[in-house]
Structures are given as C-alpha cells and as structure tokens.
C-alpha cells in the first residue's frame, strides 16, 4: 500500500456469507445454521505482473475469493479494485481458467479459443489468426479441428488457458487448473505456464491445493486460514527464474516446503473439525 502505483489488484476487507435456501442448513461448531461465512476480512495487494498462489485448507474460500476478484460473485462486505476501479462484474482485462476446463464441447479447439474474441466483437479473420497462434504457442498446432472430447485432459486444459489468454488479459485467474491432471502432465503444464507467463507479463492468481505447485510457480504464496478464510501469512519465494523442475530437489525449495506446511498445518487441523454438511445441503 506504500507504493499504490505498483498495485494492480487491491483486495480490501472482503467478506462473504452464503445464505442457504429455505429448508437447507449446515452444522457449524455444533450449531445448525442457514448462513455460512466463508471469507472474513481478506486484505491483499497484488503487484503488476506478479505470480501469486493461494493455498489453504478446504473451505477456506480460495475459490470464492477468486470468483469475487473475477467479478463473478458479489462480496458481502469490502471491495476489490483492479487498477483503481472497483470490480462488480467480469472485467474484460481478466481471464479465468477452471479446474474442469469448461471448454464448449460443441466447438473445436480453435473455435473455443475464438469464442473469447467473438463475444468481444473481434473480426473473424483476426480471431482465427490469434487462436491459431495461441494453439501453436501451446504446442497444439494441427489440433485446430478437434473437439474437446477428442483431446486428452492436458490438451484440453492447454486450450482452456489459451482461450483465457486470447483476449490478452492483464490478470489471469486460475482455479486449481491442474488438479484433475496426472502428476507428469501437471508438472509439464506448470513449466509451460511459467514459460508463457514469462513472455506476456500477466498478473496471475493461482489457487492450488499442492504446496509444491504453489512454491514452484509463485513470487509469493498466500496462505489462507481455515473457514472463515482470511490471509494468514504471505511467504515470498526468492527462487531464481526461469525455474525448471530440478529446482524442486534443491535445499531452498525444501526449506520453503517446510515453511509453508508449518503455516498451513494448524489451519488444516482446524478445517478437519469444521462444519459438516447436512444431507439436505448436499445438493
């Protein structure tokens, strides 16, 4: 906050309470309630071009926070500013990548990427050219006409990232994008993401459950508390870039791993004892 010009995203005192539908309730701390507070007093400043990873126990509201920053969910309290403007709906400067790819199954790989440009009114020739370029950037040249169900999970997620980057976003929000992939593909894509991020200098907020992934990718790891989520600690990752997979075996990396886990452990334990879903809430 002492260098406001450098801050791209400023999250101020964000809270979020979900009001359940009539007849639904959850048990929190042994008491039945129809309201659940998932975020409470989140403060976070993110610098331009920074790679931030968010880790925290299940239920700490990481994904909800991402949705609020993306303008897809309204906060109950507090606000988020992007370049000094308050976010109330999806911003054209923001791209979003989901865990389950969320590709349109009736569109080919190329047409999926084009979609992002189509809804922004970009001319046909230009959007095709951009989409082709992005597919090639992700090593998917030749797969333009494949439908999502003809692509492996890793390829689908590459297309989804390409789609999010198509509009040249200044902020990329990623909600556990590699969680559904096997370990090898996951590490491959982490490397690719860093390589591409290095070229385009986009600000990235990346939610993950994996401590390794969080450290490998990040400039700063933000550790969230158990529900209701808030920022517990922010850990600077001073590992040299460009990073490759070998860095995971280094002593520094191990030290960061121990450090993050140390901060996270109590919260994970708390989360284990947290609210349980009643059957009525399961849908």
């Amino acid at each position: 906050m002492d260098r406001p010009n450098m801050d791209r995203i400023v999250v101020s005192d964000i809270s979020k309470t979900f009001q359940l539908k009539p007849g639904q309730f959850v048990t929190v701390d042994g008491e039945a309630t129809d309201r659940v507070t998932v975020l409470d007093g989140v403060d976070l400043s993110i610098r331009k071009g920074e790679f931030i990873t968010l880790v925290g126990p299940s239920g700490s509201g990481k994904s909800v926070l991402l949705d609020i920053i993306g303008g897809l969910t309204q906060a109950t309290g507090g606000n988020v500013q992007l370049d000094g403007r308050r976010i109330t709906r999806p911003d054209p400067k923001t791209g979003y990548v989901f865990q389950q790819y969320a590709l349109f199954p009736w569109r080919t790989a190329l047409a999926n990427i084009e979609y992002a440009l189509e809804v922004r009114g970009v001319a046909k020739a230009e959007r095709t050219a951009t989409a082709r370029h992005l597919l090639a950037l992700f090593g998917l040249a030749g797969f333009e006409d494949r439908f999502p169900n003809q692509l492996s999970g890793g390829m689908q997620q590459r297309v989804a990232i390409a789609r999010a980057l198509a509009s040249n976003p200044e902020v990329l929000l990623m909600d556990e994008p590699f969680a559904a992939l096997d370990q090898q593909t996951r590490e491959l894509l982490q490397g690719e993401l860093l390589r591409i991020w290095g070229k385009i200098n986009t600000t990235v907020i990346f939610v993950t459950h994996s401590i390794d992934e969080a450290i490998f990718l990040a400039d700063r790891v933000v550790v969230m508390t158990a529900r209701p989520g808030a920022v517990k600690e922010i850990i600077d990752i001073d590992l040299p870039r460009p990073r490759d997979g070998d860095i995971r075996a280094s002593a520094e990396f191990n030290a960061y791993r121990a450090r993050v886990w140390d901060v996270l452990r109590d919260e994970v334990n708390k989360a284990q004892k947290d609210w349980t879903l009643s059957p009525a809430f399961s849908h």
């Binding site: 492996s152 999970g153 890793g154 559904a180 096997d182 491959l188």
Partner: peptide
Amino acid sequence: KFGSAGALHLFAGAGETVAVARVPAIK
C-alpha cells in the same frame, strides 16, 4: 465420456503424442 477422457491422462504423462494417437483409436 469424461471417464474415458480421464483414462487418457495415464497415457498423456509418457508423452502427449501417445495420447493423441490413442484418441482416434478408441473412438
């Protein structure tokens, strides 16, 4: 469909081209 896509990840790790070759075969 999603199930079969999930199974393909197993091949993807060894090298993405393998997975590519398998997709049309399965279909």
